[in-house]
Nucleic acid binder design. Sequence first.
DNA 1: TCAAATTCATAAGCTAGCTTATTATATCAT
DNA 2: ATGATATAATAAGCTAGCTTATGAATTTGA
Lengths: 160, 160
Amino acid sequence: MARGSVDMNLLFTLGEVQRLVRAYADKQAARYGITRAQWAVLAKVERSEGLKQSELAELMEMQPITLTRLIDKLCDHGWIERRGDDTDRRVNRLYLRKAARPLLGKLAGLRSELTATALEGINPADAHRLLAQLETIKENVRNAIQNAAGEAPRKEQHYG
Amino acid sequence: MARGSVDMNLLFTLGEVQRLVRAYADKQAARYGITRAQWAVLAKVERSEGLKQSELAELMEMQPITLTRLIDKLCDHGWIERRGDDTDRRVNRLYLRKAARPLLGKLAGLRSELTATALEGINPADAHRLLAQLETIKENVRNAIQNAAGEAPRKEQHYG
DNA sequence: TCAAATTCATAAGCTAGCTTATTATATCAT
DNA sequence: ATGATATAATAAGCTAGCTTATGAATTTGA
């Protein structure tokens, strides 16, 4: 019964929540001329400059091509830049530009506001547990995708 | 500190989780020739036949035009149909077609599988609390969007 | 009673996901 | 060394969100 009613709702509720949160965050971020998706990329670059695009895509659970487009926009605005790698000419590494600084300050404040709004009525301990459970789900699904991908392999297999 | 680290992560983690779950659910649903988004619509119609498109869009926290496209696909496949309303010729009401029945059975099983995969390592009581908290967040954000929309109104206002 | 406002569905065109394919460069196994 | 394989970024074209605009039908109100 308990599991049954979770069955009924978890998958689709997650989608509905994300849809609402996305709409709200996008609308607020638009005040600063940035979208939520671009903001997420910028925040990761802030936290660790010098990442390769491929590394960042993996961090963000996103396909490289999706990231490429977002980086294009961030570069157009002059907030970050691509720099070639010294030893591997295929690689772009990502760095903040000075123009991003004032924006980053405003976005930090906005993030606190949005989080506080979303979590109203949920105490900090519960909020923490919620976040931990979301991370657990993320790991579970990541593993499931990995396993499914290896299910019908070709040459790596050695049972033949 | 506790609130701080939640700040750092909630918004973007929610997006990353949803991205992974979406990818996984889409890949699994593809076995039955349907996408996750179409499946969500079909599931709501199953639960309450005879809804107007506009009512369904509101239920799903989705814009009417987004829903229109998904319904187009479901009708193309012959799983649901639009029927005109007797007393209001603007309205379409949505009904299942017989061809949907076998599919709905398979999808119910798939939903249980996906949910079980996602929730591995989380006990049923925690899963329940998680779902309740997601609903709370949904309400909080819905309210915030409502309030923001009414922030700079024109004629409805009566303080002048 | 009929003009204005509202509502329902849809259209056009944007963002941000995806898959599959391409180009350039690196690496590995003969 | 060099041919095969793998990796980094990008391109083309799809799905599914969004906003803003439009057409048709209904409701409201002077």
